[in-house]
Computed example of a mutant assay.
Amino acid sequence: MSLHCDIRPAQLDDRPAIIALADQIWRAHYPDMISVEQIDYMLAQRYHPEALREQITGPDQWFDLVFVEGELSGFAQYLLKEPGEMKLDKLYLLPSLHGKGYGSRLIHHVKKKAREQGCERLVLSVNKQNQKAIDAYLRNGFRIRESIVVDIGGGFVMDDYVMEKDL
């Protein structure tokens, strides 16, 4: 199995493709963890064109696309938060690519960018029910830092672990 993939920065013209891919991934992956209503709410909140404009062009943040065999297959969005800390805010791959090393490749890519920005730590939040992702992050050297519950509006909360990895 070749782990070749191309990773490139997202452009504003990529927003429709990102929205479609996020919709496909979320609806395949999250129904066992959160309600369809919460999926709809979070997709509308995080993946509309203006939100993506900020994530792609905003200062101290990056949005990268992953192409496998020339097809858009995933993405990562990350930003500087605390001094010395990069937050991996989004890391998504098509479910058919899970467990094949592409997520680890993407984490390595983000770690490199974090080091270039002078960061000492990479942090992320992951749904406590998302054991597949938690296991993947643990395999990539992350540890659970804390448990949080965040009110995101609309009557919904994110019940997450914050995980971190020293760089």
Rank of each mutant, 00 (worst) to 15 (best):
M1Q: 14
H4M: 14
C5H: 05
C5N: 09
R8L: 12
P9T: 10
R15T: 12
A17I: 08
A17K: 11
I18L: 09
A20W: 07
A20C: 09
L21R: 04
Q24V: 04
I25W: 14
W26K: 08
P31G: 07
M33V: 10
I34V: 15
S35I: 01
V36Q: 13
D40W: 00
Y41M: 06
Y41G: 02
M42Y: 02
M42V: 03
L43Q: 05
L43E: 04
L43Y: 04
Q45Y: 04
R46E: 12
R46S: 13
R46D: 14
Y47R: 05
Y47S: 09
H48Y: 09
H48M: 04
P49L: 11
E50V: 05
A51P: 01
A51D: 06
L52N: 00
R53L: 05
R53V: 03
E54T: 11
I56F: 01
T57V: 08
T57P: 01
G58E: 03
P59T: 10
W62G: 02
V66R: 00
V66D: 00
V66G: 00
F67L: 15
F67P: 03
F67Q: 07
V68P: 07
E69T: 05
G70Y: 14
G70Q: 12
L72H: 08
L72D: 04
F75M: 10
A76V: 14
Q77N: 10
Y78K: 00
L79S: 13
L80M: 12
L80N: 02
E82Q: 10
E82M: 02
G84K: 07
K87M: 06
K87Q: 12
L88S: 07
L88C: 07
K90V: 09
K90Q: 14
K90L: 09
L91G: 01
L91D: 02
Y92C: 11
Y92I: 10
L93F: 15
L93V: 15
L93W: 14
L94G: 03
P95C: 08
L97K: 07
L97A: 06
H98D: 00
H98K: 03
K100Q: 15
R105S: 11
L106K: 00
I107T: 06
H108R: 09
H108N: 13
H109S: 11
V110S: 05
K112C: 05
K112P: 00
A114F: 02
E116S: 14
G118C: 12
E120G: 13
L122D: 01
V123N: 02
V126P: 02
N127G: 06
K128H: 14
Q131E: 11
A133L: 03
D135R: 15
L138H: 07
R139E: 08
N140C: 15
G141W: 04
R143Y: 13
S147F: 13
S147K: 13
D151W: 12
D151V: 06
D151K: 12
I152W: 10
I152C: 12
G153L: 04
G153N: 07
G153F: 05
G154S: 10
G154I: 08
F156Y: 15
V157P: 01
D159E: 02
V162P: 02
M163H: 00
E164C: 06
L167N: 12
